Simulated scan of single mutants.
Amino acid sequence: MTPITEVEGRRLALSNLEKVVHPATGFTKGELLHYYATTADALLPHLHDRPLSFLRYPDGPDRQVFFAKNVPPGTPTWVTTAHVPRSEGTARMVVIQDLASLMWAANLVTEFHTPQWRVDAPDEADRLVFDLDPGPPATVVECCKVAVWLRERLAADGIEAYTKTSGSKGLHLLAAVERTPARRTTEYAKLLAVEAEKALPRLVVHRMTRSLRPGKVFVDWSQNAARKTTAAPYTLRARTEPTVSTPVTWEEVADCASPDALVFRAPDLAPRLEAYGDLLAPLLDPAHAGSLP
C-alpha cells in the first residue's frame, strides 16, 4: 500500500520509498524525499515564481532519464501552474511555490531546472548565469580558476557573482541583475566568455565545439537564453551518487586543489546550511541586483 502523508494540509501519496535511486551508495527514494524536506527552506525561494523543467530518473540514473516540461499527468489541482510561451507554442508548466508542491514533485524523482526569468516576465532575465564545464583532463580545479577571473570581471561592471557546484563536473556562476531582456543578458554573457578566452587562452573556450574542449573549461554563456534552463541550487542530480548542486564560498573556490574538493552529497547539506545558511540568498534580494553596462 502506498503511504499517505499530510504536508501543510495537503494529502500526498509517497510511493516506492525503499527503491534505490542512487545506486553507488544505496540512496533510496525515501532518503531523497527526506533530503528535499529538510532543505526546503533554502531551496523553495530559488524555485519561487520560476517555471520548472524536470529531468526525471524514476528508476535511477542508469535507467530511463527524460526531460518533462509540460505539467505531468495526474498533477494535483492545488499545484500552481502557468502558461509559458515557447517557440513551439504556449506550454503549461509547473511552478513550485510551497512545501507540499515540492514534496509532490520530489516524489517523481527529478532534478529541478529553472530559467533565468520569472513567470510574470518570461522575456526578462533577473539572473545571469555561466556554466563552467571542464573538458577532461581538466576538472573543477580549472573551473575554479576561471570562476575567479569571471568574478573579478563581473565586479568591474558592478555585478556581484556567487557560485555553486553543478552537482556534476563543474561550477555555476550566478548573479542577480535588474530585469533585462534575455537577449541582452545572453549577449553580455557571451562577451565575457569571449574575453575570458582571450585572457586565458590555454584554459578557456567559449564555443561548444567538442574538438576544442579537451583540457579546457567551456564557459557556457548560452543558458541565459530565454528558452534555456539551469540546474537549480540544492537540486539532487541524476548520478549514481546523490550529488547536489551546492552553493560554495569564494574561499572554497580559491582553495580548490583537487577534483574531489567540491563534491557534496545529500547528507552534507544539512551541516553546510547550519554553518553557512543559504550562500545564494543575496540572489533573492533586489538590493543586490546589478545593472548590465
Rank of each mutant, 00 (worst) to 15 (best):
G74P: 10
I96C: 13
R92M: 04
P23F: 08
G135F: 05
S15A: 15
P271K: 09
L52F: 02
K69Q: 11
P85L: 09
V20A: 10
A147T: 03
D255E: 15
A193F: 12
P73I: 00
K19I: 00
P214D: 02
V79R: 07
E178P: 07
R50Q: 13
G135S: 03
A257K: 11
L173K: 12
L33A: 12
L47K: 09
E8H: 10
P233H: 04
V21C: 13
A121D: 14
W149Y: 15
G26H: 04
P122M: 12
L269Q: 11
A196G: 04
G9C: 03
R183K: 14
V204G: 11
S211P: 01
D98L: 05
N107Y: 04
S87K: 13
T185P: 14
T114N: 05
L174K: 12
D120P: 00
P282Q: 11
E142M: 04
D268F: 02
Y234G: 08
F218G: 07
G135M: 06
E197W: 01
G26E: 05
P122W: 06
E124S: 13
K69E: 07
T77M: 02
A91E: 15
K190D: 02
L99H: 14
G60S: 10
P3Q: 07
A199L: 12
H113F: 01
L43A: 13
H206Y: 15
E195R: 15
L273D: 03
T39A: 13
F66M: 04
A231K: 07
E88D: 15
V84T: 12
V95R: 03
V248E: 08
V95I: 12
I4M: 08
R184Q: 15
V205A: 11
T81Q: 01
T209Q: 15
R237G: 08
E197F: 09
R207M: 09
V205I: 10
R127M: 12
I4L: 14
P72A: 00
G60D: 11
Q116L: 14
P136Q: 14
